[in-house]
C-alpha cells in the first residue's frame, strides 16, 4: 500500500513536471515580441555577424556610395525598407515557392520592391530620388539581400524574418555610414555637406579653420580603394575588441 502511495505520488510529481514542461513550451510558442532570441536576431548582424565585416557581403556598394555621408544614409534607409519587406514576402511564400525556381522568385520580389521604392520616391520625394539616382536601382544587386532571403527568410517565420531583415540592413548601414563619415571628413573636409574643418580658400590667407594652418584634404579618400582600406581598419578594430571573431589558427 505504502509502496503504491509512494509510486502514486511519484507519478503525480512526474505528471506535474510534464505539465510544467507543457506550460513552459506553450509559453515559448507565444514568444514575446522582443524576447532574447528575437533581440539576438536583431542585434547579431550589428556586430558578431555583420554582413560587411564578418560575412564580407555587399562590399561593392560600400565602395560606390560612401564618398559622402548623405547618400550613404539615404541608401541605408532604402536598404532597410527593401530588405525588411522582401524578407517578409519571401517568408510568407516560403511554403509554396517551388525550390527549383526560388532564386528567380527572390530576384523578382527584390526587383519589384526596388522599383516600387523608386517610383514612389520620384512622385513624392523627388529631391531624394534625384540624390540617389542610380544607387536605388543598384539595391537589386546587393548580395546581402539575396543572401538573407536564401539563408533566413526561406526557413523562418514572418516576424523573425522581418527582424532579420532590419538587423542585417542596419548592420550594413552602420558600416556604410562609418566609412562615409571618414571618407567625407578626410576627403573633402565636410560632413553632410557642412564644412566642419573650416573653409578652404584660394590662398592660405583666405582660408579658415584647419586650412589656415596649412591642412590639405586627402584626395585619396575620394577614390574607391580607400573604402576597402577603411573596411579593413574597421574589421581590425572589431576583431581586436570582439575575440569571438578571431579564428583559432
Amino acid at each position: 500500500m505504502e509502496d503504491k502511495k509512494i509510486k502514486n505520488s511519484e507519478e503525480n510529481k512526474s505528471e506535474k513536471k510534464k505539465e510544467m514542461i507543457m506550460f513552459l513550451s506553450s509559453s515559448e510558442e507565444k514568444e514575446h515580441f522582443l524576447s532574447k532570441a528575437n533581440r539576438k536576431i536583431l542585434s547579431d548582424p550589428l556586430d558578431d555577424n555583420n554582413p560587411i565585416t564578418v560575412q564580407v557581403l555587399g562590399i561593392c556598394s560600400a565602395l560606390a556610395i560612401t564618398v559622402q555621408l548623405r547618400p550613404a544614409i539615404v541608401m541605408s534607409l532604402a536598404v532597410v525598407f527593401v530588405m525588411a519587406f522582401s524578407n517578409v514576402i519571401i517568408s510568407l511564400l516560403r511554403n509554396s515557392i517551388p525550390s527549383r525556381i526560388r532564386i528567380i522568385v527572390q530576384l523578382v520580389v527584390v526587383a519589384a520592391m526596388v522599383i516600387l521604392v523608386d517610383q514612389i520616391l520620384k512622385a513624392y520625394a523627388f529631391d531624394v530620388s534625384k540624390q540617389l539616382s542610380i544607387f536605388i536601382g543598384l539595391i537589386i544587386t546587393n548580395c546581402i539581400i539575396m543572401g538573407r532571403l536564401e539563408a533566413f527568410a526561406l526557413g523562418n517565420g514572418v516576424y523573425k524574418s522581418f527582424l532579420d531583415g532590419i538587423g542585417n540592413a542596419a548592420g550594413y548601414g552602420l558600416i556604410l555610414i562609418i566609412i562615409a563619415f571618414f571618407r567625407e571628413l578626410f576627403g573633402s573636409g565636410k560632413l553632410l555637406g557642412y564644412e566642419v574643418l573650416g573653409h578652404k580658400g584660394a590662398t592660405l590667407a583666405e582660408s579658415t579653420g584647419l586650412y589656415a594652418l596649412g591642412y590639405e584634404n586627402n584626395g585619396f579618400f575620394l577614390l574607391s580603394p580607400m573604402a576597402l582600406i577603411v573596411v579593413g581598419v574597421i574589421i581590425w578594430v572589431q576583431r581586436a575588441r570582439n575575440r569571438k571573431l578571431v579564428e583559432e589558427n
Binding site: A64, I65, V67
Partner: peptide
Amino acid sequence: DHKGETAGL
C-alpha cells in the same frame, strides 16, 4: 545635372 556620375567626384 547628371544621371549617374560618381558621388563626390
